[in-house]
Design a protein around this nucleic acid. Structure first.
Lengths: 213, 213
DNA sequence: TATAATAACGACAAGGGTGTCATTTTTGTA
DNA sequence: TACAAAAATGACACCCTTGTCGTTATTATA
């Protein structure tokens, strides 16, 4: 004679599915992952999964959204950690690309994201998500750079948006190679060094490079 | 009482299959393409396809090899067309990324290549092809830059290999965005401009930029 | 024109993935 | 303890793809 479920037990269940399937996507990639894999990873039955998500793509897109939010927060954290220095924050962001990518490569959810994008851009109904992701990333970096300008850290000659996009392109490229190729094959560190130099002159960084890295 | 086939009729048939399936891969992407699609595109029956190739991947890898060879030749051509000027050759290569990618985007075989790489790096047996591709590209660009040094066109501070890899990373990133995003969303031209500037100072280009573009 | 070698065909079986839904299990309340 | 509502289950029917292989069509020669 009354609702029989606990309260946000549902949310808990959803979170379980999401967290388990994120690992699966990271390990196997988007296409290669089947609902069966997710069932096994969560321990929930076939029908159970469908009670919470309508299909694999639905699960993935939820994870995508969550991941973007995580990234945004991560940058805020870094900014605080570096006492508001945008340049140091950028260096910290890029540092992640140096080695880390090679270590936990086997569990790279980013790889799944790129795979999803590159395999699904042809269908108009997916474009929205893909552009949204790019747009958000560009926006975040743009406002970060703008903050640096307001700070007095930077004095770029070119448009903030263009620099932001340049940054994304390069980092995307690095991410792909880092994921795709075995360690040592490409000298990620060296490339990041060159990239930092480019960005430094592009942004016209004022700060003397005291503790560069 | 004698072999019943014309001579290199087989080769002709193979070429037919390859050329038709290249279009299909370009239009639909790697995963989304099925043998059925290739049958329809070539007009050859199911069994017929399997007489020449053992499976979809076999066809794709043949195309991949062919495409790498084409790229190599293309660069030689550009080099001649520019009277041996490496810098002008590089500018010409990069120019391809400015607009063209957006026009025939619907028929982008490069997209299929990247998709293949990002979706299959996890299987060790595929690593070979992927690394081979990267290695060859890096080699081509490295020797191109080296030629520029011998020419007296460049005088870079950093290693030729590192610059070559930096170039590949950025161009890969650009390619992905150009493919993935709708036209106008990202300002490819502007990014290439910034990239050219970076490369110019990285290579320490001697030539005055008379007919820059 | 007959024929033998072989190229081309297409029906088929097998495998795997998907989403549904009738049934069973669980759980909070009376 | 009883029970009703909701959660969880897993068998099922459907669809699509793959690679094979016995059969048919073609073709250069004699």
């Amino acid at each position: 004679m009354s609702p029989k479920v606990p309260d946000q037990h549902k949310e808990q269940r959803q979170r379980e599915i999401l967290s388990a399937s994120k690992k699966v996507f990271a390990k196997k990639g988007y296409e290669a992952t089947s609902i069966k894999d997710i069932m096994e990873a969560t321990g929930i039955s076939r029908g159970g999964i469908y009670d919470y998500f309508s299909n694999k793509e639905h699960i993935f897109l939820s994870l995508l959204e969550q991941s973007m939010e995580d990234n945004r927060k991560e940058i805020d954290t870094l900014l605080q950690k570096n006492n508001g220095s945008v340049w140091k924050t950028l260096l910290a962001i890029w540092d992640d690309y140096r080695e880390a990518k090679n270590e936990d490569k086997e569990d790279s959810f980013s790889a799944a994201i790129i795979e999803y994008g590159i395999a699904h851009w042809r269908k108009p109904e997916n474009r929205g998500y893909i552009e949204n992701r790019y747009g958000k990333a560009a926006g975040i970096f743009s406002s970060l750079i703008q903050k640096g300008i307001d700070n007095g850290e930077f004095d770029p000659v070119t448009s903030v948006d263009d620099i932001s996009r340049f940054m994304i392109s390069f980092l995307d490229g690095i991410a792909i190679s880092a994921i795709t190729l075995t360690h040592g094959f490409m000298q990620t560190g060296k490339q990041i060094d060159l990239f930092e130099n480019s960005m430094k002159s592009m942004l016209n960084v004022k700060e003397p490079d005291l503790s560069q890295r």
